[in-house]
Amino acid sequence: MFRYLILIMILSITLAGCTEQVKVDMQGAGETIPTGSTGIAFDGKDLLVAKEGLIAFIDNIDTATAGSIYGYEGHFYFDRYPITITSKENKPYITGLAWQNTAGNTGFIWASDEANRRILKISPQGDVITRIPLTKIYPEDITFDGEYLWVVDSKRKKIFKLSTEDGSIVSEYLSPVPVPTALAWDGKNLIVGGLKNLNNPAPSPDNVQIIKLDPVSGNVMENVETSRYLTSPAGMVWINGKLWISDRNSGKIVIISDKGEPSTDIRSYKLPAVAPVLKKVEAKEDKNKTAQDVDEAKRAAEEARKAAEEAKKAAEAAKKAFELQQKK
């Protein structure tokens, strides 16, 4: 009996030293990680979730099944310490996350901060590497296609393709979803989620719309079937044929298939390219001409100086001659 007590004590101490396991009441589908997360991404191992200025790394996720009679809550683990983003201006409010793979699988986190209208490039250790201000965009969810950043803006009802260097707009799209709030990249197409009507008085799954958009043609390829547990998409990420979507109303993350019906919408939502503003560059001939003008001006000034000296000498000589004449 004593041997069993010792074994139980050792097991208790061992479990206490392990990573904390967190269980939550799912009430249907998905995970609440943390409650009301607004941005989510996937780094190949962990699910990254954001709320306000906090980014957490979640591992070993086991989700509950919608409508399960067992009442299983699901569970997950925090893989490491969260990252906290600060600002000297407005309190950060992260509305989107994206992951960029790099050599050696170290990677970077891209985060859209709606409160400060900027995009941040962050190391996995939490160091902010780049701050890109956005003057013409109200950034919500964000995704990365391997070369460019994509941002949805529900205020302008647009989707923007941005350079990772300075955030300059590469191309623009009108959003097929009336109020775009969530964005993901499946390796080929953009997946856009949001609401059909912002003024809908009550949250409803019927008010949610998710589509696949071909970024080359700007055409809607598919209408993705949504979930009865999804009423207000916030962050979204595509993982192996599934869409993980954080819901703003319930605070849960709902997992659905990315499959849908072919769209009958033949409109292209890609806007015409705007010619870049060219900086005025002075031609080489103009520079040479300017140099010649300067040389000529210098020569003219020197000649004028010599002429003034000669005139001065002549005036002094005339003065002396006049004085001599007066003495006589």
Rank of each mutant, 00 (worst) to 15 (best):
Y93C: 11
I94S: 07
T95E: 12
T95Q: 14
T95W: 01
G96T: 06
G96F: 00
L97P: 08
L97Y: 01
L97E: 01
A98G: 11
A98V: 08
W99E: 02
W99L: 06
Q100A: 14
Q100P: 01
N101Q: 11
N101R: 13
N101F: 09
T102R: 11
T102G: 10
A103L: 12
G104K: 08
N105T: 11
N105P: 10
N105L: 10
N105D: 15
G107I: 05
G107C: 09
F108L: 13
I109E: 03
I109N: 10
W110C: 04
W110I: 04
A111S: 09
S112D: 02
D113E: 08
D113S: 11
E114C: 05
A115K: 10
A115E: 11
N116L: 06
N116Q: 06
R118G: 02
I119P: 10
I119C: 07
L120P: 12
L120G: 10
L120S: 06
I122F: 06
I122C: 07
I122A: 09
I122T: 10
S123E: 13
D127R: 12
D127A: 13
V128I: 15
V128G: 02
V128Y: 00
I129D: 05
I129K: 13
T130R: 12
R131A: 08
R131I: 14
R131V: 15
R131W: 00
I132S: 06
P133A: 09
P133E: 05
P133G: 09
L134S: 11
T135E: 14
I137A: 11
Y138C: 04
D141A: 14
D141Y: 01
D141R: 09
D141Q: 07
T143L: 05
T143W: 00
F144N: 09
D145Y: 03
D145P: 10
E147C: 00
E147V: 15
L149V: 03
